[in-house]
Design a protein around this nucleic acid. Sequence first.
DNA 1: TTGCTTAGGCAACAGATGTTGTATAATTTA
DNA 2: TAAATTATACAACATCTGTTGCCTAAGCAA
Lengths: 193, 193
Amino acid sequence: MLSIPTDEILDPRVKRTRNLLEQAFMEAVTEKGFQAVSVQDITERAGINRATFYAHFPDKYALLDHSVRQMFRQELEKRMLSVCTFSMENLRQLVIAVCEFVSNANSHCAPPQPQFESLVETQVKAQLQELLQNWIEQAGSDVDPKIAATAASWAVYGLASQWSHDKKRPPVESFADQVLPLVASNLHLMQTA
Amino acid sequence: MLSIPTDEILDPRVKRTRNLLEQAFMEAVTEKGFQAVSVQDITERAGINRATFYAHFPDKYALLDHSVRQMFRQELEKRMLSVCTFSMENLRQLVIAVCEFVSNANSHCAPPQPQFESLVETQVKAQLQELLQNWIEQAGSDVDPKIAATAASWAVYGLASQWSHDKKRPPVESFADQVLPLVASNLHLMQTA
DNA sequence: TTGCTTAGGCAACAGATGTTGTATAATTTA
DNA sequence: TAAATTATACAACATCTGTTGCCTAAGCAA
């Protein structure tokens, strides 16, 4: 297993290989669905030896983890949510961001596959939890930040996931407005906004 | 694939085979951990042909799903939570039940394995959602029952999961007391209790 | 540049997976 | 009881999986 860190100087060969693998992986997933994609598929498309794959990732699930983490992080940065403090408007934007990300991820993988969605969930929730905990701590609330952040991040992800599966779902914005008070109640920060 | 329903008259051969598989599966999991268990393991222990396994379950993940669903359902029935209406005390008991179930499940599988936990999560949350939605509907709240039940069930599971991973965790009862208001706020039913 | 370090290519392996076809035995239905 | 249905056993299969050892070549540091 080679070094994993994202923000570190990497051997250009490593960078190249991982990019090829990630790219081939996304292609294969959108084409055949996550379940049907084998490590063989990925490495053949990428023009990388199969053994090399295992030098970077234990299995295809780890590669999915890695890709999702990276994509969601980029999404948060693009929307400048990773560098701000709590406000109702920011919370609203966060809900929208999660809804759109989850919806987009799931659309790449019909029919719904629990394994795939679980891995997306784990990565997204981890970053949500971290972000919300920061917001709570900075706002100096009286609740336990970790506990509140846990409840809130799970609630947000759950609502986003349900929305994304809704056959005739409302526009993201109105859905966000609808659930905002519910989500905010987990943070106990309404008054400090 | 044979018929799945739980509460139906089953061919005794099917019942026997599934019981043997479930039993062998649980043995193998507690002994080697979920990841390391192969379909071979299970069928050899059970004295069942490997091909027969695939006549009942698509893979070992489906068997885990099945087992967990069954165990959690039994747990709820034992605590008589599946046949009651909302009250703060019942909600408290529910939180405790989930904490203990999750903790017990995870203890069977060290070190923590996301795949395993994700499958447990999916099954537990599905039943939580159903139960909470019933509570909300029976209480005749003004919130959307589905949305509130989603937020609450995810929050409950998330908190239980975090508690179960806490190295020096407080007793279940005091943890339940601590998070109860947070959980209840998702239901918007505090006044009707 | 030279030499050291390390990633990737290649081949081969044992093992697991999922599937198929046929035969046998258990169960149900009439 | 006799005939039907259907679950299981068994064997064999192509495929995928993780892993290993050896070799080549790309990158880095003196």
